[in-house]
Design a protein around this nucleic acid. Structure first.
Lengths: 195, 195
DNA sequence: GAGTTTCAGTTGACGTTGTCATCTCTCTAG
DNA sequence: CTAGAGAGATGACAACGTCAACTGAAACTC
Protein backbone atom coordinates (compact mmCIF):
# COMPACT_ATOMS: atom_id res chain seq x y z
CA UNK A 1 0.00 0.00 0.00
CA UNK A 2 2.07 2.84 1.28
CA UNK A 3 5.74 2.10 1.30
CA UNK A 4 7.95 3.51 3.98
CA UNK A 5 9.42 6.10 1.66
CA UNK A 6 5.98 7.29 0.60
CA UNK A 7 4.79 7.62 4.14
CA UNK A 8 7.92 9.48 5.14
CA UNK A 9 7.52 11.88 2.23
CA UNK A 10 3.89 12.39 3.24
CA UNK A 11 4.78 13.37 6.80
CA UNK A 12 7.49 15.66 5.52
CA UNK A 13 4.93 17.38 3.34
CA UNK A 14 2.47 17.51 6.22
CA UNK A 15 5.09 19.10 8.45
CA UNK A 16 5.83 21.80 5.89
CA UNK A 17 2.14 22.44 5.37
CA UNK A 18 1.49 22.62 9.09
CA UNK A 19 4.38 25.02 9.64
CA UNK A 20 3.18 27.27 6.81
CA UNK A 21 -0.38 27.33 8.16
CA UNK A 22 0.74 28.12 11.69
CA UNK A 23 3.00 30.87 10.38
CA UNK A 24 0.16 32.37 8.38
CA UNK A 25 -2.37 32.38 11.16
CA UNK A 26 -0.31 33.07 14.24
CA UNK A 27 3.02 34.49 13.17
CA UNK A 28 6.47 33.13 13.85
CA UNK A 29 5.82 32.72 17.57
CA UNK A 30 3.05 30.24 16.83
CA UNK A 31 5.43 27.95 14.94
CA UNK A 32 6.69 25.61 17.64
CA UNK A 33 7.90 22.14 16.83
CA UNK A 34 5.31 20.73 19.19
CA UNK A 35 2.46 22.57 17.46
CA UNK A 36 3.78 21.70 14.00
CA UNK A 37 4.04 18.06 14.96
CA UNK A 38 0.57 17.99 16.48
CA UNK A 39 -0.99 19.55 13.39
CA UNK A 40 0.83 17.06 11.19
CA UNK A 41 -0.29 14.17 13.36
CA UNK A 42 3.10 13.33 14.87
CA UNK A 43 4.93 14.28 18.05
CA UNK A 44 7.58 16.84 18.80
CA UNK A 45 10.57 14.65 17.98
CA UNK A 46 9.42 13.60 14.52
CA UNK A 47 10.54 16.73 12.65
CA UNK A 48 14.13 15.84 13.49
CA UNK A 49 13.86 12.88 11.12
CA UNK A 50 13.19 15.26 8.23
CA UNK A 51 14.91 18.51 9.16
CA UNK A 52 18.15 19.17 10.92
CA UNK A 53 16.70 21.91 12.98
CA UNK A 54 13.76 24.17 13.57
CA UNK A 55 15.60 26.75 11.51
CA UNK A 56 16.00 24.24 8.68
CA UNK A 57 12.27 23.64 8.71
CA UNK A 58 11.60 27.35 8.42
CA UNK A 59 14.14 27.67 5.63
CA UNK A 60 12.32 24.89 3.79
CA UNK A 61 9.02 26.75 4.17
CA UNK A 62 10.59 29.92 2.80
CA UNK A 63 12.24 28.04 -0.05
CA UNK A 64 8.94 26.49 -1.06
CA UNK A 65 7.35 29.94 -1.15
CA UNK A 66 10.16 31.26 -3.36
CA UNK A 67 9.72 28.27 -5.67
CA UNK A 68 6.02 28.85 -6.23
CA UNK A 69 6.74 32.53 -6.84
CA UNK A 70 9.39 31.50 -9.34
CA UNK A 71 6.84 29.31 -11.13
CA UNK A 72 4.49 32.25 -11.34
CA UNK A 73 7.20 34.52 -12.73
CA UNK A 74 8.14 31.91 -15.31
CA UNK A 75 4.53 31.48 -16.42
CA UNK A 76 4.08 35.22 -16.58
CA UNK A 77 7.14 35.67 -18.76
CA UNK A 78 5.90 33.01 -21.20
CA UNK A 79 2.42 34.52 -21.35
CA UNK A 80 1.66 35.74 -24.88
CA UNK A 81 -0.24 38.93 -25.53
CA UNK A 82 1.29 40.85 -22.66
CA UNK A 83 3.62 43.80 -23.09
CA UNK A 84 6.88 43.88 -21.18
CA UNK A 85 5.52 46.62 -18.95
CA UNK A 86 2.45 44.54 -18.15
CA UNK A 87 4.60 41.55 -17.34
CA UNK A 88 6.73 43.64 -15.03
CA UNK A 89 3.65 44.99 -13.34
CA UNK A 90 2.34 41.47 -12.90
CA UNK A 91 5.58 40.22 -11.47
CA UNK A 92 5.86 43.06 -9.00
CA UNK A 93 2.29 42.59 -7.86
CA UNK A 94 2.85 38.86 -7.44
CA UNK A 95 5.58 39.68 -4.93
CA UNK A 96 3.59 42.44 -3.31
CA UNK A 97 0.59 40.17 -2.87
CA UNK A 98 2.62 37.83 -0.73
CA UNK A 99 3.46 40.78 1.50
CA UNK A 100 -0.16 41.82 1.61
CA UNK A 101 -1.90 38.54 2.21
CA UNK A 102 0.82 36.49 3.91
CA UNK A 103 2.91 39.05 5.75
CA UNK A 104 4.56 36.55 8.06
CA UNK A 105 5.58 34.31 5.20
CA UNK A 106 6.86 37.36 3.37
CA UNK A 107 9.00 38.37 6.31
CA UNK A 108 10.38 34.85 6.47
CA UNK A 109 11.26 34.91 2.76
CA UNK A 110 13.46 37.96 3.27
CA UNK A 111 15.00 37.03 6.59
CA UNK A 112 18.48 35.61 6.51
CA UNK A 113 18.69 32.83 9.07
CA UNK A 114 21.75 32.91 11.38
CA UNK A 115 22.74 29.35 10.55
CA UNK A 116 22.82 29.68 6.76
CA UNK A 117 22.45 33.34 5.81
CA UNK A 118 22.54 32.65 2.08
CA UNK A 119 19.97 29.85 1.99
CA UNK A 120 16.92 31.95 1.17
CA UNK A 121 18.87 34.23 -1.15
CA UNK A 122 19.70 31.13 -3.20
CA UNK A 123 16.05 30.11 -3.20
CA UNK A 124 15.09 33.54 -4.53
CA UNK A 125 17.44 33.31 -7.47
CA UNK A 126 15.10 31.80 -10.03
CA UNK A 127 12.38 34.35 -9.32
CA UNK A 128 14.88 37.13 -9.77
CA UNK A 129 16.40 35.70 -12.94
CA UNK A 130 12.98 35.41 -14.56
CA UNK A 131 12.15 38.94 -13.56
CA UNK A 132 15.47 40.21 -14.85
CA UNK A 133 14.70 38.77 -18.28
CA UNK A 134 11.37 40.60 -18.47
CA UNK A 135 12.97 43.87 -17.43
CA UNK A 136 15.58 43.43 -20.14
CA UNK A 137 12.75 43.30 -22.69
CA UNK A 138 11.64 46.75 -21.57
CA UNK A 139 14.84 48.67 -20.98
CA UNK A 140 17.42 46.64 -22.87
CA UNK A 141 20.23 44.41 -21.68
CA UNK A 142 22.43 47.35 -20.85
CA UNK A 143 20.41 48.82 -18.00
CA UNK A 144 18.39 45.74 -17.10
CA UNK A 145 20.37 44.83 -14.01
CA UNK A 146 20.25 48.27 -12.47
CA UNK A 147 16.55 48.75 -13.11
CA UNK A 148 15.62 45.24 -12.10
CA UNK A 149 17.38 45.75 -8.78
CA UNK A 150 15.59 49.04 -8.36
CA UNK A 151 12.19 47.60 -9.23
CA UNK A 152 12.57 44.61 -6.94
CA UNK A 153 13.75 46.85 -4.13
CA UNK A 154 10.76 49.09 -4.58
CA UNK A 155 8.29 46.24 -4.74
CA UNK A 156 9.93 44.84 -1.66
CA UNK A 157 9.45 48.13 0.12
CA UNK A 158 5.87 48.56 -1.03
CA UNK A 159 5.05 45.08 0.16
CA UNK A 160 6.73 45.78 3.48
CA UNK A 161 4.72 48.95 4.03
CA UNK A 162 1.56 47.12 3.03
CA UNK A 163 2.39 44.22 5.30
CA UNK A 164 2.72 46.51 8.29
CA UNK A 165 -0.45 48.34 7.33
CA UNK A 166 1.32 51.68 7.02
CA UNK A 167 0.16 52.40 3.47
CA UNK A 168 -3.41 52.70 4.70
CA UNK A 169 -2.40 55.79 6.66
CA UNK A 170 -4.18 58.85 5.18
CA UNK A 171 -0.82 60.61 5.42
CA UNK A 172 0.02 59.07 2.07
CA UNK A 173 -3.16 60.33 0.46
CA UNK A 174 -4.82 56.97 0.11
CA UNK A 175 -2.46 55.43 -2.40
CA UNK A 176 -2.57 51.69 -2.77
CA UNK A 177 0.04 49.18 -3.85
CA UNK A 178 -1.29 49.06 -7.40
CA UNK A 179 -1.02 52.84 -7.76
CA UNK A 180 2.57 52.85 -6.59
CA UNK A 181 3.46 49.96 -8.85
CA UNK A 182 1.95 51.67 -11.86
CA UNK A 183 3.76 54.91 -11.12
CA UNK A 184 7.00 53.02 -10.72
CA UNK A 185 6.73 51.07 -13.95
CA UNK A 186 5.74 54.20 -15.86
CA UNK A 187 8.71 56.07 -14.47
CA UNK A 188 11.12 53.37 -15.48
CA UNK A 189 9.56 53.02 -18.91
CA UNK A 190 9.67 56.77 -19.49
CA UNK A 191 13.24 57.09 -18.29
CA UNK A 192 14.54 54.25 -20.42
CA UNK A 193 12.63 55.53 -23.43
CA UNK A 194 14.14 58.96 -23.01
CA UNK A 195 17.78 57.90 -22.80
CA UNK B 1 23.74 62.06 45.63
CA UNK B 2 21.71 59.93 43.31
CA UNK B 3 18.04 60.00 44.14
CA UNK B 4 15.92 56.94 43.62
CA UNK B 5 14.25 58.41 40.56
CA UNK B 6 17.62 59.19 39.00
CA UNK B 7 18.95 55.73 39.64
CA UNK B 8 15.80 54.16 38.24
CA UNK B 9 16.05 56.27 35.11
CA UNK B 10 19.69 55.26 34.80
CA UNK B 11 18.91 51.55 34.91
CA UNK B 12 16.12 52.03 32.41
CA UNK B 13 18.59 53.71 30.08
CA UNK B 14 21.14 50.98 30.73
CA UNK B 15 18.55 48.31 29.90
CA UNK B 16 17.70 49.98 26.60
CA UNK B 17 21.36 50.38 25.75
CA UNK B 18 22.13 46.78 26.64
CA UNK B 19 19.23 45.48 24.56
CA UNK B 20 20.31 47.58 21.58
CA UNK B 21 23.91 46.35 21.84
CA UNK B 22 22.89 42.72 22.11
CA UNK B 23 20.55 43.13 19.15
CA UNK B 24 23.31 44.68 17.08
CA UNK B 25 25.92 42.09 17.82
CA UNK B 26 23.95 38.88 18.08
CA UNK B 27 20.57 39.43 16.49
CA UNK B 28 17.17 39.06 18.06
CA UNK B 29 17.97 35.65 19.51
CA UNK B 30 20.74 37.15 21.62
CA UNK B 31 18.33 39.54 23.31
CA UNK B 32 17.19 37.59 26.34
CA UNK B 33 16.00 39.34 29.46
CA UNK B 34 18.70 37.58 31.44
CA UNK B 35 21.45 38.78 29.12
CA UNK B 36 20.03 42.29 28.97
CA UNK B 37 19.85 42.43 32.75
CA UNK B 38 23.37 41.09 33.18
CA UNK B 39 24.81 43.63 30.76
CA UNK B 40 22.94 46.40 32.55
CA UNK B 41 24.18 45.20 35.92
CA UNK B 42 20.87 43.87 37.23
CA UNK B 43 19.13 40.51 37.25
CA UNK B 44 16.46 39.00 35.06
CA UNK B 45 13.50 40.34 37.03
CA UNK B 46 14.54 43.98 37.03
CA UNK B 47 13.31 44.85 33.51
CA UNK B 48 9.76 44.22 34.70
CA UNK B 49 10.01 47.35 36.85
CA UNK B 50 10.53 49.44 33.72
CA UNK B 51 8.80 47.57 30.93
CA UNK B 52 5.60 45.61 30.87
CA UNK B 53 7.07 42.90 28.81
CA UNK B 54 10.00 41.75 26.73
CA UNK B 55 8.05 42.94 23.73
CA UNK B 56 7.60 46.36 25.32
CA UNK B 57 11.35 46.60 25.81
CA UNK B 58 11.95 45.80 22.15
CA UNK B 59 9.33 48.32 21.09
CA UNK B 60 11.13 50.92 23.19
CA UNK B 61 14.41 50.10 21.44
CA UNK B 62 12.77 50.45 18.04
CA UNK B 63 11.05 53.67 19.04
CA UNK B 64 14.36 55.17 20.16
CA UNK B 65 15.88 54.30 16.80
CA UNK B 66 13.01 55.96 14.96
CA UNK B 67 13.41 59.04 17.14
CA UNK B 68 17.09 59.50 16.34
CA UNK B 69 16.32 58.99 12.66
CA UNK B 70 13.60 61.63 12.99
CA UNK B 71 16.13 64.03 14.51
CA UNK B 72 18.43 63.43 11.58
CA UNK B 73 15.65 64.04 9.06
CA UNK B 74 14.69 67.24 10.84
CA UNK B 75 18.27 68.50 10.86
CA UNK B 76 18.66 67.60 7.22
CA UNK B 77 15.54 69.50 6.23
CA UNK B 78 16.74 72.60 8.05
CA UNK B 79 20.21 72.39 6.48
CA UNK B 80 20.84 75.45 4.28
CA UNK B 81 22.68 75.19 1.00
CA UNK B 82 21.19 71.87 0.01
CA UNK B 83 18.81 71.36 -2.87
CA UNK B 84 15.60 69.44 -2.33
CA UNK B 85 17.00 66.54 -4.34
CA UNK B 86 20.13 66.45 -2.18
CA UNK B 87 18.04 66.47 0.97
CA UNK B 88 15.95 63.61 -0.35
CA UNK B 89 19.07 61.69 -1.21
CA UNK B 90 20.44 62.30 2.26
CA UNK B 91 17.23 61.22 3.93
CA UNK B 92 17.00 58.04 1.92
CA UNK B 93 20.61 57.16 2.62
CA UNK B 94 20.09 57.82 6.32
CA UNK B 95 17.44 55.13 6.33
CA UNK B 96 19.44 52.82 4.10
CA UNK B 97 22.47 53.13 6.36
CA UNK B 98 20.52 51.72 9.26
CA UNK B 99 19.70 48.72 7.10
CA UNK B 100 23.31 48.39 6.04
CA UNK B 101 25.11 48.80 9.32
CA UNK B 102 22.49 47.74 11.85
CA UNK B 103 20.41 45.18 9.98
CA UNK B 104 18.86 43.64 13.07
CA UNK B 105 17.80 47.01 14.41
CA UNK B 106 16.43 47.83 10.99
CA UNK B 107 14.35 44.70 10.92
CA UNK B 108 13.02 45.52 14.37
CA UNK B 109 12.03 49.01 13.25
CA UNK B 110 9.81 47.60 10.53
CA UNK B 111 8.36 44.66 12.41
CA UNK B 112 4.92 45.07 13.88
CA UNK B 113 4.80 43.40 17.27
CA UNK B 114 1.80 41.13 17.92
CA UNK B 115 0.86 42.91 21.12
CA UNK B 116 0.65 46.43 19.71
CA UNK B 117 0.94 46.29 15.92
CA UNK B 118 0.77 50.06 15.50
CA UNK B 119 3.38 51.01 18.08
CA UNK B 120 6.37 51.26 15.76
CA UNK B 121 4.32 52.77 12.95
CA UNK B 122 3.48 55.61 15.35
CA UNK B 123 7.13 56.01 16.24
CA UNK B 124 8.01 56.29 12.56
CA UNK B 125 5.57 59.11 11.97
CA UNK B 126 7.87 62.06 12.64
CA UNK B 127 10.59 60.73 10.34
CA UNK B 128 8.05 60.28 7.59
CA UNK B 129 6.46 63.68 8.07
CA UNK B 130 9.83 65.40 7.83
CA UNK B 131 10.64 63.45 4.70
CA UNK B 132 7.27 64.23 3.20
CA UNK B 133 7.97 67.95 3.57
CA UNK B 134 11.25 67.68 1.69
CA UNK B 135 9.65 65.72 -1.11
CA UNK B 136 6.97 68.37 -1.40
CA UNK B 137 9.72 70.91 -2.08
CA UNK B 138 10.82 68.87 -5.07
CA UNK B 139 7.60 67.69 -6.69
CA UNK B 140 5.00 70.05 -5.23
CA UNK B 141 2.27 69.48 -2.67
CA UNK B 142 0.05 67.77 -5.19
CA UNK B 143 2.13 64.68 -5.83
CA UNK B 144 4.22 64.73 -2.67
CA UNK B 145 2.34 62.00 -0.84
CA UNK B 146 2.45 59.56 -3.71
CA UNK B 147 6.12 60.11 -4.46
CA UNK B 148 7.13 60.16 -0.81
CA UNK B 149 5.46 56.80 -0.30
CA UNK B 150 7.20 55.49 -3.38
CA UNK B 151 10.61 56.81 -2.33
CA UNK B 152 10.33 55.48 1.19
CA UNK B 153 9.20 52.12 -0.11
CA UNK B 154 12.13 51.97 -2.46
CA UNK B 155 14.64 52.98 0.18
CA UNK B 156 13.12 50.40 2.45
CA UNK B 157 13.59 47.76 -0.20
CA UNK B 158 17.13 48.81 -1.06
CA UNK B 159 18.03 48.70 2.62
CA UNK B 160 16.44 45.29 2.94
CA UNK B 161 18.40 43.87 0.01
CA UNK B 162 21.56 45.44 1.39
CA UNK B 163 20.84 44.08 4.84
CA UNK B 164 20.58 40.55 3.50
CA UNK B 165 23.67 41.04 1.37
CA UNK B 166 21.83 40.30 -1.87
CA UNK B 167 22.85 43.50 -3.62
CA UNK B 168 26.45 42.33 -3.67
CA UNK B 169 25.43 39.53 -6.04
CA UNK B 170 27.09 40.09 -9.44
CA UNK B 171 23.69 39.28 -10.95
CA UNK B 172 22.80 42.94 -10.38
CA UNK B 173 25.89 44.16 -12.18
CA UNK B 174 27.64 45.48 -9.10
CA UNK B 175 25.27 48.31 -8.25
CA UNK B 176 25.47 49.73 -4.74
CA UNK B 177 22.86 51.44 -2.61
CA UNK B 178 24.10 54.90 -3.52
CA UNK B 179 23.75 54.16 -7.25
CA UNK B 180 20.20 52.97 -6.86
CA UNK B 181 19.29 55.94 -4.70
CA UNK B 182 20.69 58.37 -7.25
CA UNK B 183 18.84 56.68 -10.10
CA UNK B 184 15.66 56.78 -8.11
CA UNK B 185 15.87 60.46 -7.17
CA UNK B 186 16.74 61.40 -10.71
CA UNK B 187 13.79 59.47 -12.06
CA UNK B 188 11.39 61.17 -9.70
CA UNK B 189 12.85 64.59 -10.38
CA UNK B 190 12.66 64.05 -14.15
CA UNK B 191 9.11 62.74 -14.02
CA UNK B 192 7.82 65.57 -11.88
CA UNK B 193 9.62 68.13 -14.05
CA UNK B 194 8.05 66.70 -17.16
CA UNK B 195 4.45 66.74 -15.99
C1' DG C 1 10.58 -17.57 5.07
C1' DA C 2 13.62 -16.66 9.22
C1' DG C 3 16.92 -13.47 10.88
C1' DT C 4 18.93 -9.04 10.61
C1' DT C 5 19.21 -4.33 9.58
C1' DT C 6 17.33 0.20 8.89
C1' DC C 7 14.80 3.96 10.05
C1' DA C 8 10.39 6.81 11.08
C1' DG C 9 8.39 7.90 15.19
C1' DT C 10 7.87 8.06 20.48
C1' DT C 11 9.28 9.10 24.98
C1' DG C 12 12.04 10.87 28.88
C1' DA C 13 15.20 14.20 30.22
C1' DC C 14 17.92 18.59 30.34
C1' DG C 15 19.08 23.40 29.89
C1' DT C 16 17.16 27.84 28.64
C1' DT C 17 13.68 31.18 28.29
C1' DG C 18 9.69 34.51 29.67
C1' DT C 19 6.93 35.42 33.44
C1' DC C 20 4.83 35.64 38.05
C1' DA C 21 4.66 35.72 43.32
C1' DT C 22 7.16 36.66 47.08
C1' DC C 23 10.69 38.67 49.71
C1' DT C 24 14.26 42.28 51.01
C1' DC C 25 15.98 46.61 51.56
C1' DT C 26 16.53 51.43 50.85
C1' DC C 27 14.81 55.90 49.79
C1' DT C 28 11.16 59.18 50.65
C1' DA C 29 6.84 61.44 52.54
C1' DG C 30 4.39 62.78 56.51
C1' DC D 1 10.85 58.76 63.54
C1' DT D 2 7.74 55.87 61.40
C1' DA D 3 5.03 54.03 57.55
C1' DG D 4 4.78 53.48 52.90
C1' DA D 5 6.38 52.78 48.27
C1' DG D 6 8.96 50.96 45.01
C1' DA D 7 13.45 49.03 42.83
C1' DG D 8 15.63 44.94 42.72
C1' DA D 9 16.68 39.85 44.00
C1' DT D 10 15.15 35.28 44.19
C1' DG D 11 12.47 30.90 43.81
C1' DA D 12 9.34 28.59 41.04
C1' DC D 13 6.77 27.12 36.86
C1' DA D 14 5.30 26.15 32.18
C1' DA D 15 6.81 26.05 27.50
C1' DC D 16 10.34 25.60 24.32
C1' DG D 17 14.36 23.39 21.36
C1' DT D 18 17.16 19.57 21.46
C1' DC D 19 19.41 15.14 22.41
C1' DA D 20 19.78 10.11 23.80
C1' DA D 21 17.60 5.98 24.32
C1' DC D 22 13.93 3.15 23.00
C1' DT D 23 10.09 0.79 19.99
C1' DG D 24 8.14 -1.27 16.18
C1' DA D 25 7.44 -2.16 11.53
C1' DA D 26 9.15 -2.19 6.83
C1' DA D 27 13.09 -3.69 3.83
C1' DC D 28 16.89 -6.43 2.85
C1' DT D 29 19.94 -10.86 3.09
C1' DC D 30 20.62 -15.53 2.76
Amino acid sequence: MTSRAESAAATRRALLEAAAELLDSGGLDAVTLRAVGARAGVTRGAPYRHFLDKESLLIAVGTRAWDTLGDRMQALRAEPGLSAAEKIRGGLLALIDVGRFQPHLYQLMFSNPPGDPTALARAAQRSQTEFLAVVADLVGEQDARRYAALLISSANGIAGLEASGQLADPKWGGVCAEDLTDTLVEMVAATSRHT
